[in-house]
Computed example of a mutant assay.
Amino acid sequence: MISLSGLNTRMGLQLVDATRDRQIEMIRNSAEDRRAIEAFKERIDGVFSVDQLMEDRELYVFTMKAFGLEDQIFGKAMVEKILKSDPDDPKSLVNRLTDPRFREMHEVMGFVDEGKNNLNTFSTSWQNDMVDRYVEQRFENAQAEQNDKIGTVLEFRRKAGEINNWFDVLKDAEISEFMRTALGVPASVAGLDIDKQAELFAAKFDIAKLKDPAELESLERRYVAITDAKAGVQSSANAALALMNAAVATGAGGQFTPITLDISAITGFRSGGY
């Protein structure tokens, strides 16, 4: 992975974007990840039940990593119960968990009939989508390990298109933190009743604007500028730019063009009482 050492969030994110394709290719070609991908594609089409998935350690670990659940691999018994849950039963385990990653895994994996059958594993297009999901998550994790704010931005980019209301935001800790920061909402608001939180957010920003790429870019720029300002980072733009140009030159070549942030725009949203 490309080192982000010494760079603030803004410069680090620019470097990540400039080297993204190279890093994705590096992940696909690394010995560990290449073996994991090959094993998944070779054996997943023979998995029709949750029990079969659980019996194959490599496929289970691959699946967990693909959904950003690497930190939950130890909870195998719980994951088995989640995948066997009935999504139409509001009392089922998958519907009682607050972590949206589990619900997403349940939906995408496609196990039905209490985990006895599967709708997806035989599909080549689904397999390819799972590999892409795995690689993307590995890329995102690698950046977040170096700079958690960059990781949050990348997660926001990935999930923004799936957000339809403020409750979709509030059920996700990372996205909630992103929106609170970008909109200037105090962290203390997280302790309020969820309906009150949704009301306060709605007064600050029309959630429908997340369908507008220009609004997404504006929120991202605000988040990055505010987090860097809070961190008190005063890195040298010239030194960072030289580093980025060197990184790009070792890849596809060319010159990196810096993006100027309008820091004054941070105050663009009207303030509210909390």
Results as ranks from 00 to 15, higher is better:
3 S>T: 12
4 L>C: 13
4 L>S: 12
7 L>T: 12
8 N>A: 08
11 M>W: 14
12 G>N: 04
14 Q>Y: 12
17 D>E: 15
19 T>Q: 04
19 T>A: 01
29 N>S: 12
31 A>I: 10
32 E>D: 15
41 K>A: 12
41 K>Q: 13
45 D>W: 09
46 G>H: 07
46 G>R: 02
50 V>N: 01
58 E>K: 08
58 E>L: 04
60 Y>E: 04
62 F>I: 07
64 M>R: 02
64 M>N: 06
68 G>L: 01
68 G>Q: 00
69 L>D: 02
70 E>Q: 05
72 Q>C: 07
72 Q>M: 11
82 I>M: 03
86 D>S: 10
87 P>K: 09
91 K>E: 05
95 N>C: 03
95 N>E: 03
96 R>V: 00
99 D>R: 03
101 R>F: 04
102 F>N: 00
103 R>G: 03
104 E>T: 09
104 E>I: 12
106 H>C: 11
107 E>S: 00
108 V>P: 00
109 M>F: 09
110 G>Y: 12
114 E>Q: 12
117 N>Y: 07
117 N>S: 08
117 N>P: 03
119 L>M: 13
121 T>W: 13
121 T>M: 11
124 T>R: 15
126 W>D: 00
127 Q>E: 04
127 Q>S: 03
130 M>E: 00
131 V>Q: 02
136 E>H: 00
137 Q>S: 02
140 E>C: 01
141 N>G: 08
141 N>S: 11
144 A>S: 12
146 Q>T: 00
146 Q>H: 01
148 D>F: 02
153 V>L: 04
163 I>N: 05
175 I>K: 06
175 I>Y: 12
176 S>I: 07
180 R>K: 13
181 T>A: 11
184 G>R: 05
189 V>L: 11
193 D>G: 13
194 I>K: 14
196 K>T: 14
199 E>V: 13
199 E>Y: 14
201 F>S: 04
203 A>G: 14
203 A>D: 10
203 A>K: 11
205 F>G: 01
208 A>H: 15
210 L>D: 08
213 P>K: 03
214 A>R: 05
215 E>K: 03
218 S>G: 07
219 L>K: 06
219 L>C: 01
222 R>Y: 12
227 T>E: 01
238 N>A: 05
240 A>L: 07
240 A>S: 09
243 L>M: 03
245 N>V: 00
248 V>D: 01
248 V>Q: 08
249 A>V: 12
249 A>N: 06
250 T>Y: 13
250 T>M: 06
251 G>M: 10
251 G>W: 11
251 G>D: 13
252 A>K: 07
253 G>P: 02
253 G>N: 00
254 G>T: 13
256 F>G: 02
262 D>P: 07
269 F>Q: 09
270 R>N: 10
270 R>T: 14
271 S>Y: 04
